[in-house]
């Protein structure tokens, strides 16, 4: 009998044990996805930081030269005469201009002479260098380098593609009236030289930079080519974005060479009505740097008109909170 009394005093019944195990099971079920989200949160934070640094680099560039760098350093979609310097056939983008301000001065010095002598960006020395601060860790396809060893000097060997793009405004890059992208309503376009004074809407109400998703190079025949994020391919405006559609929109981007994939769809391919939209793999939206170098997470459910208002520099819209 003492044995049975002991049993009641110190033992655990099977039901109790099972309940404990069930609770632990539920806890694990709750915890594991949370751990994965924590990792994504850390990646997003690094991505936000990269965008913040780019915003500060733009400010430093402005402090030095009195204006923001051009979105594309030359006309887009422009073919110079074959006897002329080929610089504008594929000009550099804002990215090369701010290299000295993101501690990549040596890389910039290496390609300075190349540009000064009228050569195009797609053959620039150092173009295969991966710049970590221009790569978003949340994008599984970054960093991306295009070097196919193709026979052509520059085509399909345009080097490093990154995730961060500059805001051209709230419209297409190349609508029918502006095939060379020379006058857009945002801060960055072809040969732009926007000053803070030109941002009449207010720097904190105007988008400066955002992020996009890269599409990996694929296909042995070289048919799966995508220009998005190509910093050395200024010819096709592959390093800008428009706020015409909200982040992660179902509406496809449109570039001269664009592969439609599930997270980065395309709306055909062409140089007319070219456009790219902000995209990311962060859950529910994308990061955007504003003119005051602040970085905010913009939800993909933002009203179209509100996001468009944030893209323009001088359209005097009343900005609603994002």
């Amino acid at each position: 009998m003492p044995a049975s009394r002991n049993r009641k005093m110190i033992g655990f019944t099977l039901v109790e044990l099972l309940v404990v195990i069930a609770i632990i099971g539920v806890l694990i079920a709750l915890l594991l996805p949370a751990v994965q989200q924590a990792r994504e949160a850390a990646r997003r934070m690094q991505c936000t930081n990269n965008l913040k640094q780019l915003g500060l680099a733009m400010h430093n560039y402005h402090d030095t030269f009195g204006k923001f760098p051009p979105g594309v350093v030359g006309r887009a979609n422009y073919d110079p005469a074959s006897s002329d310097p080929q610089f504008e056939k594929c000009p550099p983008t804002w990215m090369q201009m701010i290299l000295p301000f993101i501690e990549q001065g040596n890389l910039y010095d290496g390609m300075k002479q190349h540009f000064a002598t009228g050569n195009m960006a797609a053959t620039a020395p150092g173009r295969f260098t991966v710049i970590e601060s221009l790569t978003c860790p949340s994008d599984p396809n970054g960093p991306k380098i295009i070097d196919t060893g193709a026979s052509s000097q520059w085509y399909e060997r345009w080097g490093f593609n990154g995730n961060y793009v500059a805001c051209s405004g709230s419209d297409y890059f190349t609508p029918s009236g502006d095939p060379n992208m020379l006058n857009r309503d945002g801060i960055f376009y072809a040969k732009s030289a926007t000053r803070f004074g030109d941002i009449v809407d207010g720097a904190s109400n105007t988008a400066l930079m955002s992020e996009i998703l890269l599409v990996p190079y694929g296909g042995a025949s070289g048919e799966v080519i995508d220009l998005r994020g190509g910093y050395y391919f200024g010819r096709r405006i592959s390093a800008c974005f428009s706020t015409q559609e909200s982040p992660n929109t179902l509406v496809g981007d449109r570039l001269s060479t664009c592969q439609s994939v599930s997270y980065a769809p395309c709306n055909g391919q062409g140089v007319d009505d070219a456009v790219m939209y902000a995209r990311s793999r962060h859950t529910g939206g994308a990061n955007v740097t504003f003119g005051d170098a602040s970085v905010r997470f913009v939800s993909e459910t933002v009203a179209r008109s509100v996001f468009q208002a944030y893209g323009t520099r001088a359209n005097s819209e009343t900005t609603e909170p994002l």
Binding site: L14, G25, I28, A29, Q36
Partner: peptide, 28 residues
Amino acid sequence: TLRLSLSLFFAASAFSVWTGCSDRLPAL
């Protein structure tokens, strides 16, 4: 008990993988 707890654990792991790793594609 051991068997039950093991199966519970595996069920929980499977559930967590199913909920946590499935990436959201935009609805078309």
